[in-house]
Each structure stands twice: as C-alpha cells, then as structure tokens.
C-alpha cells in the first residue's frame, strides 16, 4: 500500500502536534510548517500528496495560499477553519480547496477526510474520469444513455436533477459550494437559483434515499454546499 505524504500547515503548535501525532500513528509521512510562505514553498519543492491547511495563518491569508498553489498544482487541499469563518470556508472552496474540517474536529473525522481524499486521488490516477459509466455503491450513471439507476431501478429525475447528480458524481468526495453548483447548472448564481438548488437537492436526495437503511449519497453542508460521498458495496 502506498504511503501518502501530507503537508501540514498550522501555526498553532498544540493543534499541529495533534495532527502530526495522528498522522504518525496512522502511517502517514508528513511535513509540518507554520506559515503561508513556507507552505507554498514546501508544496513546490516536496510535492506532497495532500495538503492540510489552516485558514488563519499569521503571515498570509489561507485562501491566498490556495490560489498560489492552484496556479500550478492540483494537489488535494483540505482546509481547517474555526467555526465562525463560514465565509472564509466558502471562499477557500471556491478558490480550489477540496474539503474542509471545522475546529474542533475529532481525530476520526480527520482520518475519514484523508481517506476520502485518497480515494479521489486513486480514481484520478486511474484515469477513470473518461468512463462512460459512473458507479458508486448501488448508484449507477450511464452518461451515454443519459440515465441513472439505483440498483436495478431507473431513477425518475428531472433534467436539472440529472445535471446536478452528474456534477456531484464527477466531483465525488469533494465539497461543492452552492455558488459552484448553481454556476455549473444554471450558468448563474442568483439568489433564486440558490433557493431552487435547495429544493432540487432535497428531492434528489429523497429519490436517492429510497430505503431508510440505505446510506446517504449526498451530504448537506449547511451554509456551505453539498458533497457526494463514496459508498461501499
């Protein structure tokens, strides 16, 4: 199994310590830095597999770090933010971050996010993006036929619901902001589109969640956006 290299960018020593201890205990390799400039430099020179980035850095805005890194690299970035920085979180996601963690987070949550990102990396590396069929658990999307299935049943979706589902599937594991989704689906992000998105998402989730014991394919991140999770089986 591959050992992943993680760049930890966190200025607070105890939190940095917590993260690196967790990483070490779970067989990750890591580099820890405390500033934004260093983070950009380390990303360029060490080419890590995943970046864990605290938004509140002393020398540079975390969002700025993402913009700089994104100018040449597609390395997955997981943002770590305090809970009252919703807008910053959305900015970070729009700037190209893949996922976020809210302080205080549990160690298990951190590890789960890392696993999700690893799976994304595997799919990206396998070049599966060009597949004409997307499979996630019981969910199957046939892009060529323009149909989606849950198990053997064809899902009865409206055109917009289908469009949203495809968008989520293409970015599986990644949190998509409301703004991103509305821009992709409607081509704009008016208030009315955002409102519509809420309702389409709710109906879509209901159709994907046919039985109570089934897993949720689409997670809601209140105030931020949505994410399709990988489901086993």
């Amino acid at each position: 199994m591959k050992t992943y290299r993680v760049l930890v960018v966190e200025d607070d020593a105890p939190v940095r310590n917590l993260i690196t201890t967790t990483l070490r205990a779970n067989d990750y390799r890591y580099i820890a830095v405390s500033g934004g400039e260093e983070a950009v430099m380390e990303t360029a020179s060490h080419n890590p597999d995943i970046v864990l980035l605290d938004l509140g850095l002393p020398d540079m805005d975390g969002v700025e770090v993402i913009r700089r890194v994104r100018s040449w690299s597609n390395v997955p970035i997981i943002v770590i933010s305090a809970r009252n920085e919703d807008e910053d979180k959305i900015d970070a996601l729009d700037a190209g971050a893949d996922d976020y963690l809210t302080k205080p987070f549990s160690v298990n949550e951190l590890l789960a996010r890392l696993r999700v990102t690893q799976r994304r990396l595997m799919i990206m590396n396998a070049g599966g993006a060009s597949d004409s069929v997307f499979v996630n658990g019981q969910l199957r999307i046939d892009y060529a036929a323009g149909c989606a299935y849950l198990g053997e049943e064809e899902l009865r979706l409206t055109p917009i619901e289908y469009k949203i589902l495809c968008l989520m599937a293409q970015n599986v594991g990644k949190v998509l902001t409301h703004k991103y989704i509305t821009q992709q689906v409607w081509g704009s992000s008016w208030e009315n589109d955002v409102v519509s998105l809420r309702v389409f998402m709710a109906t879509l989730r209901k159709k994907l969640h046919a039985a109570p014991d089934m897993p949720q394919y689409i997670q809601t991140h209140v105030g931020v956006g949505y994410r399709m999770q990988r489901v086993d089986g």
Binding site: G146, C147, A148, L155, R156, L157, T158, P159, I160, E161, Y162, N192, V195, S196, V199, F200, T203
Partner: peptide
C-alpha cells in the same frame, strides 16, 4: 416561511 416559485416542475420524470 419563505415563499418561492420554481421554473421547473419538481415531480417531472426522465433524465
């Protein structure tokens, strides 16, 4: 409650 109207019929089928 916030009252809103939609451009698309939510109960529609297809895809």
């Amino acid at each position: 409650l916030k009252e809103v109207t939609f451009d698309e019929d939510l109960s529609g089928s297809g895809g």
